[in-house]
Design a protein around this nucleic acid. Structure first.
Lengths: 178, 178
DNA sequence: GTACCCATGTAATCAGTTACATGATTCC
DNA sequence: GGAATCATGTAACTGATTACATGGGTAC
């Protein structure tokens, strides 16, 4: 049910069309909540039916500009302050870790080595993004920067963990041989 | 498509029934890949149709014990070594952060304070789990412990981040007033 | 006039959740 | 005999992904 709130949150910053929202999603929200074009248009329709957004203006090429209503703002605030975030997060990266025992130790270490590389690359992408976001002073930039800081710290932690895990498996393998 | 591989991974440790798998999921895999009973039985049926598992034995009460086949092991190894894990992870906790600007600073800080509490509680649960897992010496315990270490480090990082974010918002609010 | 971007929508499919439905066996 | 546990399955619904389909406006 979070896509609905993501849309409300973006419309709380100002009116926008489905097309505008898609670009904002791709640019800033895609790291925490990806959404496809068809999902967005569908959700806007449902929100309009529920009275949480309205078509504020129509433009060329059938463009519909949506605005959040009072009911929509109330729902957004409710979600922000009263609804507890999901604590379980699916991770197929960690799921694989449970089963590394079916590989020989070299391949298990290879898996973790690739994770170090991948997460390092992602850290660099976040770093580059931070430079851009630091320019902005709108609400989405200010709080987007805080979310991005999470990404920077998270990728750093994950890199250290993957290195630690690699070593632990190496020691495990040596102990088994000797 | 990861549930399929989670099931293969568990059956790689030894034969089991759908009922057994459900218990193992609840006990160890639920933190990285939750699955419901109905999903499990459905997936076992599909895997059997695909020839990646077989019914190795039947027991009382209609119990079917499944075993992984060579084709299933090949698929599992392929998934572990060749398929890149998803890098995007949905987080409604972080999604909310983007929109904290619609709240007044006190409520925004309240949100982050609650996250500190929630993640601290989860850290403690992981710590308790670690004591239990450290006892086991089977493959799932050894690698499960490595996954758990990720959880311990991740929750620690998240707690520090949430504290930092709280302070940053406090400073932001003071600067806006002054 | 043609290529590119703006702009919206539908259909099919898949994964995951919740609820329902049923019955056998074991323990006391 | 009754409760708890073992054990499997189906149905309805929701959310997300992929692909398809269409057409208007703008810049050159």
């Amino acid at each position: 049910m979070s896509l609905r709130h993501a849309v409300l949150g973006l419309l709380a910053q100002g009116p926008a069309s489905g097309y505008d929202l898609r670009k904002t999603f791709d640019a800033s929200l895609s790291n925490v909540w990806p959404a496809t074009q068809s999902q967005l248009y569908g959700e806007l329709g449902k929100l309009a039916d529920a009275g949480q957004v309205t078509v504020a203006a129509e433009g060329p090429r059938g463009r519909k500009e949506y605005a959040i209503t009072d009911a929509g703002m109330a729902e957004l605030r409710h979600w922000l302050t009263e609804v507890e975030p999901e604590r379980v997060r699916r991770s197929d990266m960690l799921l694989r870790v449970f089963f590394l025992g079916v590989l020989d130790p070299e391949d298990a270490q290879g898996y973790l080595r690739r994770q170090v590389q991948a997460v390092t690359a992602q850290h660099e992408r976040f770093r580059a993004l931070a430079d851009v976001v630091d320019e902005g002073d709108d609400s989405l930039s200010v709080y987007g920067r805080i979310a991005l800081e999470w990404g920077l710290r998270f990728t750093e932690t994950q890199r250290e963990w993957a290195r630690w895990a690699q070593e632990r498996i190496a020691r495990e393998a040596t102990a088994a041989k000797g």
